[in-house]
Computed example of a mutant assay.
Amino acid sequence: MNDLELAWRMERACRNAWPAPRSLWLDGWVLNLAGSLGRRINSVNALGPAPGPVAALVPVAERFYASHGQPAIFRVTDLIGQGLDQRLDDAGYTTEGRTLTLHAAIAARTMDAAVTITPEPDAAWLMAMSRLQDQSPDTALAYHRIVRSIAAPSGFAAFREDGQYCALAYGTVSEGLLCLESVVTDAAWRRRGAAARLIRSLMGWGASQGAAAVCLQVMADNVAGQALYRSLGMGEPVYRYHYRRQPGER
């Protein structure tokens, strides 16, 4: 398997792990719509290495998002060439959210006694995630709906000490990959190894579900996160992406 094939498997696995509640499929592109849950599931994404022409795509996307009261946002990976970026440059779109997509083989199956993993998020897990991510009530409700809609085999993990939730994450398995999402640590437990222990346990769980490797997406300016993932074997990114936002829209 070459890097491009791996990259598109990772794209699909990440999409399965964080599915948009509403989507419009259009000539090799998908226009995702999710309201208050960030750019990734509120943006236009390519579905493969040769999506349809961008000249027709941009005005359609702008009308689609405007009809839902949102700016047009395009998620531009380095897997599809520079045509979309050039078209958006000409239209005055701004650039934001540079992100790395990481990958590593799962070398061992580790389960930590302080980590629990369940196939569904219970109310306590969801409340802890809302607290650690500082979600508003509307965002928390939308988050709950999305994670409960995931179709891929899923593991919702919690690292706890004395009954307190110290670190949380979940993973899903598809395309032979464990995709990690929503990795978050209580401020009091940062740099104390809780997240690493949590992720190692999720990797062990993923291996038990048939995953041979792990992948995730991390912001390019998240230095602490990248250091954590390097310690777990995820080094150079397989590919990168960024977002382009419609001018004059925030």
Rank of each mutant, 00 (worst) to 15 (best):
S130F: 02
G233Q: 12
M10Q: 15
S36I: 05
A13R: 13
Y243I: 01
A128C: 10
V223M: 08
E11V: 08
G28A: 01
G35L: 01
T110Y: 05
Q82D: 15
P153E: 02
P137S: 10
D3Y: 07
A7K: 06
R200K: 14
Y229L: 06
P59V: 03
P237G: 02
W125S: 02
I80F: 05
A124H: 04
R190L: 07
R39T: 10
G97Y: 06
A195V: 11
W205V: 06
G92F: 09
L57G: 12
L180V: 05
G52C: 01
L37W: 10
I146R: 15
M111N: 02
C166L: 00
G210K: 11
I117P: 03
Y65C: 02
M234L: 15
T116E: 10
W205T: 10
V60H: 06
V147T: 14
Q217L: 09
A220H: 01
D186P: 03
R63V: 03
G163Y: 05
A113D: 08
M129Y: 09
D27L: 04
A61T: 13
Y241E: 04
R98I: 03
A108Q: 12
G69M: 11
P19G: 01
R131M: 12
G97R: 02
Q226L: 13
Y229W: 07
V115N: 07
A55T: 07
Y65W: 08
V58N: 03
C14I: 09
A128I: 06
L198D: 00
Y65I: 12
G83P: 00
R250V: 15
